[in-house]
Design a protein around this nucleic acid. Sequence first.
DNA 1: TTGTAGGCGTTATCAT
DNA 2: ATGATAACGCCTACAA
Lengths: 347, 347
Amino acid sequence: MPQQPTGQRPTLEAVAARAGVSRATVSRVVNGGAGVRRPVVEKVREAVEELGYVPNPAARTLVTRRTGAVAVIIAEPEPRIFSDPFFSVQIRGISKELTANDTQLVLLLVEGPEDYDRIARYLAGGHVDGALAFSLHTDDPLPSIAGRIGLPTVYGGRPGWTPGPGGPGAVAYVDADNRGGAREAVRHLIGLGRRRIAHIAGPGDMTSATDRLDGYRDALVDTDPLMVADGDFTEEGGARAMAELLDRRPDLDAVFAASDLMAVGALRVLRERGRRVPEDVALVGFDDMRSVAESTDPPLTTVHQDIEGMGRLMARLLLRALDRDRAGAVTPSSLITPTRLVRRASA
Amino acid sequence: MPQQPTGQRPTLEAVAARAGVSRATVSRVVNGGAGVRRPVVEKVREAVEELGYVPNPAARTLVTRRTGAVAVIIAEPEPRIFSDPFFSVQIRGISKELTANDTQLVLLLVEGPEDYDRIARYLAGGHVDGALAFSLHTDDPLPSIAGRIGLPTVYGGRPGWTPGPGGPGAVAYVDADNRGGAREAVRHLIGLGRRRIAHIAGPGDMTSATDRLDGYRDALVDTDPLMVADGDFTEEGGARAMAELLDRRPDLDAVFAASDLMAVGALRVLRERGRRVPEDVALVGFDDMRSVAESTDPPLTTVHQDIEGMGRLMARLLLRALDRDRAGAVTPSSLITPTRLVRRASA
DNA sequence: TTGTAGGCGTTATCAT
DNA sequence: ATGATAACGCCTACAA
């Protein structure tokens, strides 16, 4: 039963005294015990146990210059984080990977543009060894902040800004194969015999949206601009976009929505307008958020992406970079994870 | 433009030299500047600016014994965190409050029982000044860990275990008025003229579930055990429970589900069995998760709780306790936030 | 009001 | 293989 002499935590010194060795030796044992003779290791371990010694991370950080923590930065003004399990799942993936590597997760939520100052200060302060950042729009100030500070950072989703030519080194990011997935979705619709395929797109300043739009175009010989409407990645936006499309091209026979949420909105409008899904209009979403895709009526055919896996990958990439940091060369690299079409009833 | 002489961050020493004062004075200025003459403050501030000085948190923590960080511990084996925006919203509330008080949020996700060791070590290590914990089941080891370490902790939701009589001090927690809200929901159904009111309950080891069950019973003169079924707080569970109830008491004319998610499952089964909502069976949920309550058909009447507000409150309570910690007496206290019935179309 | 000096708990270098 | 000892960067009596 570890003793805790009321408020005062035991230090290396105390353990050393108890074990009859020097602080240095205790330190060695605590950090793996290489180069210390077995019996001594035993003795020290015992003392540690008896005293309930736990290293003081601040002291350790002060000298090693490593914090053992990374920041996870989520910049989503408001809407998505609420209705979207996306972040929860991705964070879980990240957390698992970090935990396995004995690294802590410091969560930085960006509430508004004014927050960036605070975040810049925090990152500059050396509270963390690296950062994981999400959901950047093209004009996001974060990359420049991280760059200036020289903080190893991995992005979730392909960043929208163009890195200076050859510039400060390539940017590390993890992304799903948005373009390929979109292409597959549309090809599936074509295979179903659909010919007038519309697209409900996400915001133009997010690469996940534009990449999916590109994929949509890839699959079509020529695309009618009237067949594309912006849905803003929200359910409401999806509904609005669907209404617009129906007004512009009443003869459409399929829709590829760039997110499940937007597909749900579209579904509602299609029903309201008396179109049967999939008979009259086939519908494909993107994301495969099971909680929504499985519970729509009809269940949604959609493009699956391994969100938790992407989180894991981001963490792994960062940890690798941090390790190399200790050694020397920093070699950022990026990873694209595959997607796959999940057939349900809507297309 | 703050200079960063390549890798080396400026220290107090450097700033002191630049401003032509002692480290002590710089320290004072950096920490508020009380007891330093104006012109000196100015001079130091300038030097700080020019050098781009940011205090080293590790060094600071080492001497002040405060980390400026609190842990948020979420122990939810798996299911809920995915489909449930509950945590996202609550965390946002917490984050806002912490940020406003210059405190960092360290996220600790519990993946399994084996994780508690790691978490105990982390907390004992003094990485954080306090903790915010969620979603405890009655047998959760966390309270005992926090208690042993003596770490100020605020719980989200009334803890299920009984604190020793007079014991180690009352436990601080923030909770919604689950019982009162449930009572109001059932009374509303009664006011609608319903007489055979069933309840879909949550897991028996969570106080939010049992409190809502108690509220249900409060409002009814006598309760038929056959009218209560366990729905496990999931949509699937809600569906199962609804089916059971319908089998046991085909004549029921109203259902109060202890969560919106379960209500959705119930709604599905009611429809499958040909019952109209609200004509044949009135349905009330709990939570008022807008993304689900508003998009069901018919929209769900439910009990609203201010989730983000609860998060804020938890943080505020903890911060207050931490402040008092510096002074002396620790006085935990608990807060119950009100709920209110939101009438939509399902009842 | 300002400066001096000691110490917070580790790690790391250098002897031994 | 082990032990002194000097940093690490900051705060805070205490002195001036």
